[in-house]
Structures are given as C-alpha cells and as structure tokens.
Amino acid sequence: MNNQASIRRAGRPRAEESEQKRERLITTALQEFARAGFHAASVRDIAEKAEISSRTLYNYYPEKLALLEACLEYSARQFRPVLPALKGGLHSQLVTYATEMQRYLSRPLSMQIARLIFRESSDFEGLREIARLQFERHQVVPVAAILEKGGVDPARSQLLAMQFVAMAFGEWHRRLLYGRDPLTRAEMAEQAELTVGIFLNGIGKS
C-alpha cells in the first residue's frame, strides 16, 4: 500500500514537469514562429531556447507543422474563458464576442502569427488546412453556438456564423493586410454594435 502511494506521489511531479516543459516549448515556438516565420524558424533553435533537446521536441511533435498547430491551439485557448462569460440577449452576446475577439486578434503576437499564415499559406497546403480548421473551430463554431442559443435554426447557424465572422472581422483583415494599426478599443466596440445591428436585421432577429 505504501509502495503504491509512493509511486503515485513520484508520478505527479514527473507529469507536472512534462506539462511545464511542453508549455515552455509551445510558448517559445510561438514567439519564434512569429519572429522568423514558419519556414525560416529552426526546430533546433526552438529546442535550444526552450531548454530541451531536439529529440524531446520531436517526441512531443514529430514535425514542425504539428508544433505550429499546437501553438495555434494554445493561443486560441487564451480566448476561451470569454465564451462562458457572455451574458444578455443575442445582440449583446454577439457584440461582446466580436469586440473581445477583435481585441484578442489585435494583440501584437496574434497579428504576427496571422501575417505568417497569410504570407506563407499560399505556398503550403498543410498550413492552409490548419488555418481553415482554426478558423472553423475558434470563430465559426462559437458564433454558431451563440446563434442557436438565440433561437436561430441549427440548419442555418453554421452558414450564418461564417457570414457574421466575415462582417465582424473584415476591417481587421484589411488592416492586417495593409499594415495599418488595429482599431482602438472604442472603435472596436462601435464597429461591433454596427455590425451586429446590420447582421441581425438581415436575418430577421433585430
């Protein structure tokens, strides 16, 4: 009995250490991808800066693309706590979502990663597919869920969510592509109010 308890106690630090090592690797890789771009980023440099061996890195992620996907998932998780906190009716929830998501996307690191994807995905199908899945998983699906809770037919929610995302973040995309500064927080809120009003009026939910 005592031996089993000792094994369990010994296992916890190792598991925690492994998780801390993985998180350090991901945050380091995220910074390196943002700085150098996907193709130019060196796996050896990432491992060295994360203070792990290249072998350990490849044990976690067998290829560089898998590491980038893990980085994008990690980054997206930073936004998820906002979703359960959405309150009010459909209009209020969509305004809050659009405002907070645009703030998240306008962080310097988010902008750098987005530029990387725009710049390099045209020549790399694997990167395009990851970007598509990230878009659906972290933008379209949450908006579709908000719409369904607001009474929108589930058969239409996915398509309407894609339309809403295109409307809500169109200005963000333009500023990203042309290298302009992001909107201010006040401008984000104002744009979200206008976009949601037009969108809900268009689908008969105003």
Rank of each mutant, 00 (worst) to 15 (best):
Leu57Thr: 02
Thr99Ser: 15
Gln102Pro: 00
Phe79Thr: 12
Phe169Gln: 10
Phe38Pro: 03
Leu194Ser: 14
Phe169Ser: 02
Met188Lys: 09
His138Thr: 07
Leu25Asn: 10
Thr28Val: 11
Leu176Ala: 05
Val152Arg: 00
Lys149Glu: 13
Gly197Cys: 09
Leu160Arg: 05
Asp123Leu: 03
Phe33Arg: 09
Ala168Pro: 02
Thr195Lys: 14
Glu23His: 09
Arg77Leu: 11
Leu159Glu: 15
Pro108Ile: 00
Arg156Lys: 14
Ser121Val: 02
Tyr97Gln: 06
Arg35Leu: 14
Asn3Thr: 06
Glu129Trp: 03
Leu116Asn: 09
Leu109Asn: 08
Arg175Gly: 09
Ser75Pro: 02
Glu73Tyr: 05
Leu83Ala: 02
Tyr58Val: 03
Asp45Gly: 02
Arg115Glu: 15
Ala166Cys: 01
Ile146Asn: 00
Phe33Leu: 12
Asn59His: 12
Glu120Asn: 05
Glu19Arg: 10
Pro142Gly: 07
Gln163Val: 01
Gln78Lys: 14
Glu23Lys: 13
Gly88Arg: 12
Val152Ile: 12
Phe135Arg: 01
Glu69Arg: 14
Ile146Lys: 01
Ala36Gln: 14
Ala66Ile: 08
His138Asn: 15
Gln102Ala: 09
Gly204Thr: 07
Ala34Asp: 03
Leu176Ile: 07
Glu136Phe: 10
Thr195Tyr: 05
Ala5Arg: 12
Ser122Leu: 10
Leu68Glu: 05
Leu72Gln: 13
Leu183Trp: 01
Arg180Ser: 06
Arg77Gly: 14
Met1Asn: 09
Ser206Arg: 09
Gln163Lys: 02
Leu94Gln: 09
Gln93Asp: 11
Ser6Trp: 01
Pro142Arg: 04
Ser157Asn: 03
Glu69Ala: 14
Ala50Ser: 06
Ser92Thr: 15
Ala166His: 06
Leu67Ile: 12
Met162Thr: 11
Ala40Cys: 08
Arg103His: 14
Ala155Val: 10
Glu32Asn: 12
Leu200Asn: 07
Thr184His: 04
Glu190Gln: 13
Gln139Ile: 01
Leu83Lys: 00
Leu83Pro: 00
Ala47Trp: 08
Thr184Cys: 04
Val82His: 09
Glu73Pro: 03
Arg128Asn: 04
Met101Lys: 11
Leu116Ala: 13
Val95His: 03
Lys87Arg: 12
Trp172Ile: 02
Gln102Trp: 04
Asp181Met: 07
Val141Leu: 07
Ala10Arg: 06
Tyr58Met: 06
Gly37Asp: 13
Lys87Ser: 15
Leu147His: 05
Ala40Pro: 07
His173Ser: 05
Gly89Met: 09
Gly37Arg: 07
Lys64Gly: 03
Ser18Thr: 11
Gln102Ile: 04
Val165Asn: 10
Lys64Cys: 12
Gln78Phe: 11
Ala5Trp: 10
Gln78Asp: 11
Ala192His: 13
Ala10Ser: 10
Ala50Asn: 12
Cys71Ala: 15
Asn2Lys: 06
Gly150Arg: 12
Arg185His: 09
Leu183Val: 01
Trp172Asp: 05
Glu100Thr: 08
Ala166Gln: 08
Leu86Gly: 05
His138Arg: 01
Glu187Cys: 11
Glu69Gln: 15
Arg44Glu: 04
Leu200Arg: 08
